[in-house]
């Protein structure tokens, strides 16, 4: 019975993929055998077909694919480039939306004692988990950070009073504060995207502006290993759901009940 349903979704997923109207993210989201039929690299971004929408955006990270690319920083460079993230060159003032953290630290609550050789002392990309039950949103006194209906935890820098309560509440250290004026520390300012001002909090937004333009998040697009799979978790036929059906995924600190939406496939 369950196999039947699985196969049904598989077929349904592949069938919808063939339909012209299905957004480009599905292409990425499908398994690798399907991806090969469409060549998409960072040089030739997919042609936008209207805004990308979902009931609940989520991301899966294929950790082994990511680790195959030794010392790769393409996702974070792309993200920090398009979002005008400054580089202060010191950990105190540091601002980061996505970064590489050692597996042991990213999942330190698991207290991994003996990891497989290929995971030990390796780094994985971490960023905002876009929790279904986000503590940052709960504590924000002005609703400057809020959860959109499609699951994106947004940040309204216009409203932020800079109290940093969200940073105290985030169990993942995903948020950064502008301790000083960031502008002089942005290597190459992209005028199409705003910078931030001192005194406000910022973080990953799942590239809400790119989704609105029909583009995938910058990190997903930049990942040549296609280790980042972005899709709709409520669409049973989506690539991310298919992947989660096939492989074991772990999430960071699931015991806190925040329901993080970033899945690490190990």
């Amino acid at each position: 019975m369950s196999i039947d349903r699985r196969q049904f979704f598989k077929i349904a997923g592949l069938a919808t993929l063939g339909l012209a109207g299905k957004p480009a993210y599905e292409v990425f989201a499908q398994g690798e055998d399907v991806v090969d039929s469409v060549t998409v690299t960072s040089e030739t971004p997919p042609v936008p077909t209207g805004p990308l929408t979902a009931h609940r955006w989520a991301m899966a990270i294929d950790v082994r694919k990511c680790l195959d690319q030794k010392d790769c920083k393409k996702c974070l460079l792309a993200c920090h480039q398009v979002h005008n993230v400054p580089d202060f060159g010191n950990p105190k003032d540091e601002i980061k939306w996505i970064w590489k953290e050692s597996f042991e630290h990213a999942f330190h609550e698991q207290d991994f004692e003996h990891l497989p050789d290929d995971l030990e002392h390796q780094v994985v990309p971490i960023f905002c988990n876009h929790c279904d039950n986000p503590p940052c949103v709960q504590v924000c006194p002005t609703q400057a950070t809020f959860r959109r209906e499609d699951g994106i935890v947004m940040m309204d820098q216009h409203r932020c009073i800079g109290c940093r309560y969200c940073m105290a509440a985030c169990p993942y250290g995903s948020r950064s504060f502008n301790w000083r004026d960031p502008r002089p520390f942005i290597k190459q300012v992209d005028p199409a995207y705003p910078t931030r001002t001192r005194g406000v909090v910022e973080k990953c937004t799942f590239c809400d502006d790119r989704l609105a333009r029909g583009l995938l998040p910058a990190c997903v697009e930049a990942c040549e290993a296609r280790a980042m799979i972005f899709g709709d978790l409520e669409d049973a036929g989506s690539g991310i759901r298919e992947l989660l059906r096939q492989r074991l995924a772990i999430r960071r600190k699931p015991g806190l009940g925040t329901k993080p939406e970033i899945y690490y496939i190990v």
Partner: peptide, 14 residues
């Protein structure tokens, strides 16, 4: 200058 004038930083925010 901003709150960077304090000893606070990304990890110790209060």
């Amino acid at each position: 200058y901003g709150l960077g004038i304090t000893g606070l930083g990304r990890d110790v925010t209060w």
